[in-house]
Write a protein that binds this DNA or RNA. Structure first.
Lengths: 162, 162
DNA sequence: AGGCTTTTCTTGTAGCGTCAACCTTTCCGG
DNA sequence: CCGGAAAGGTTGACGCTACAAGAAAAGCCT
């Protein structure tokens, strides 16, 4: 895999931005997990699953669609939904149109759990990210993440609800 | 923990930036792990450990210092170094000045492993992040991550080599 | 010096994610 | 139709991380 090309090392500015991004990518998920574990006994990924279901029509999505919306692999989602189902927050039912597919839908208890967890989560999002930036920086961040996702997620599988 | 204050929900712009950042924080570490696993049989965290040691004077750091430099908990580092030591990439020796402390230092084999892995890693960093952004955006990203780290890492434990 | 706290690091366990293998069902070419 | 390939999910095993507990040395206070 080592081409004969010379390596183009990073400049000091580029290195700073790179190291900063790595640190954020390392610390942010841990911080979100920690807060949600404490206050709602949920993983951040659990929360995302419940949130995506809550926004879907009928609060119901096929497993594959849900996996794409949450940027997760199918085995991972399968395991997580299995646990959420054991806790009564989600239910799986066979899809009537396609016997291969399974529909995951949010239970009433899952809905109340999500509603109870949401305020604390949003507060954390503000405290750690949004309120630490100027409005201009928020706009810049949106443009930057969009650019990065074209590389990180070429098929653009992410939720584009608009 | 639910204060009586009303929740300040996110605006559409803020939500976009937030969701984008979450997706990046989810996908970037996975992509880096994947590339390094394939080409060098290293975790991205393994790589960071080796890289930090390589930059230290004498290619040697105390475990606690190394943990701070890599934003890791001490148990995590202890386990990782144990595996790296089993592979001959790192060695642990008791610190002569403080009998509680252990020094981790890079072996010759660890150095060659790191040197072999570095070009591919830098290429990935460019392909996924740096080359996807304009110079102006790189500067913006550096400012944004710096602002975020004051919240995510209040004690500012991260490497500040300058 | 004696005892208490703090620091430093290791260990063990439980939980979560990845990977490979597998089983169905559906699609599609001939 | 029928047989092979693809799509949709599940399962089990393995590896890594967090958390809690513990051991040992250093610092501190009197």
């Amino acid at each position: 895999m080592t081409t004969t090309d010379e390596v183009r090392w990073l400049t000091a500015d580029q290195l700073h931005a790179w190291v900063g991004l790595l640190a954020v990518a390392e610390l942010l998920p841990a911080a979100l997990d920690s807060q949600l574990r404490r206050e709602a006994n949920l993983t951040h990924f659990d929360y995302q699953v419940l949130a995506m279901l809550s926004e879907a029509p009928g609060r119901c999505l096929r497993m594959t669609t849900l996996a794409l919306r949450t940027s997760a692999t199918l085995p991972r989602l399968s395991h997580v939904v299995e646990r959420l189902e054991a806790r009564g927050l989600v239910e799986r039912t066979p899809n009537p149109d396609d016997a291969r597919a399974n529909d995951a839908h949010l239970t009433a208890e899952g809905w109340t759990t999500l509603v109870a967890a949401a305020p604390g989560h949003v507060r954390t999002a503000r405290a750690l990210v949004i309120d630490a930036l100027t409005d201009e920086q928020v706009a810049q961040l949106e443009a930057i993440t969009t650019a990065l996702l074209t590389r990180l997620d070429p098929e653009d599988r992410l939720a584009r609800r608009s």
